[in-house]
Design a protein around this nucleic acid. Structure first.
Length: 256
DNA sequence: AGGACTGGGATCGAGT
DNA sequence: GACTCGATCCCAGTCC
């Protein structure tokens, strides 16, 4: 496969993902339209508890926001297509050694006022003010946050470990549960050690210190402590984001 | 008794 | 340089 074909295959995977998102957005829009019609026919919208919901004006604002969001996605896709022909694309191709993730959330969770929201950090936290579609496309094609100078987060690292069969003796998913994982009593310190190495800490990381960091995630809701020894759980939102990032990564690796 | 766990709080380092 | 955020570090206390 020559390099031009290789780029095209990668790009197709990314475009496919964005198109899927676009389709989902269209479905959501259709739902809003249905609700809008209900509101117009009855004069007001009430929920199942009989509480009055936001006005028609509110929903038309929401629709406008949805439209601008879809427009934003289209612009990102356009920028990706442009990037296909650029030299910089070669430089920011992903490597598949387990250190790379595409930050799709930075593309898909943009707000209509121009801010980009980060799903991992919750919808209220803007990522970068004045982010352009070009910048988003750039980030889609770029390397990991850590490699770009952004911090690698502990839960990303743990997810990597969990997806690595070679690390199953240290940390593994708890079968028959969703997002629940458990450290091995014997090898938990190994995971902490690797985390410390990855972060480039001078002092060795210990399980005790790492678990403190894990407990801090309880505040943001990214990871919850399960009332079971050495066991934690990813929140649904965190897990789905991590999984979709991982899915893209795998798809890109396979297309190489 | 001892390991795991919890939570408070100070501090550090990187990014903005 | 000030500020924020995430991580690190230490410690006292509780739970099993």
């Amino acid at each position: 496969m020559n390099s031009a074909q290789e780029y095209q295959t990668d790009l197709e995977v990314i475009l496919e993902f964005l198109e899927e998102h676009y389709r989902q957005e269209s479905r959501r829009k259709a739902l809003w339209n249905t609700r809008d019609l209900c509101a117009m026919s009855t004069g007001e919208v009430v929920n199942t508890s009989g509480e009055k919901l936001p006005s028609e004006e509110h929903f038309s604002n929401v629709l406008e926001q949805e439209k601008s969001q879809m427009h934003f996605s289209e612009q990102v896709m356009g920028s990706l297509a442009k990037a296909k022909g650029s030299d910089s694309y070669t430089d920011c191709r992903m490597n598949c050694n387990g250190t790379t993730a595409v930050d799709q959330s930075s593309v898909l969770h943009n707000s209509p006022d121009g801010r980009v929201l980060n799903a991992l950090n919750g919808p209220e936290r803007p990522l970068t003010p004045n982010t352009t579609p070009e910048k988003c496309a750039e980030s889609l094609l770029s390397i990991t946050p850590a490699e770009k100078g952004k911090k690698l987060r502990l839960f990303h690292f743990l997810f990597e470990m969990l997806e690595d069969p070679g690390m199953a003796h240290c940390v593994s998913w708890v079968p028959a549960t969703v997002g629940v994982f458990r450290f091995s009593a014997r090898h938990k310190e190994r995971v902490a050690e690797l985390w410390g190495q990855r972060k480039g800490n001078r002092m060795p990381m210990t399980y005790q210190k790492m678990s403190r960091a894990l407990r801090n995630y309880a505040r943001s809701g990214e990871i919850i402590k399960v009332k079971k020894k050495l066991t934690y759980k990813f929140s649904v939102a965190t897990l789905s984001t991590l999984r979709s990032q991982h899915g893209i990564k795998k798809a890109l690796c396979q297309s190489k």
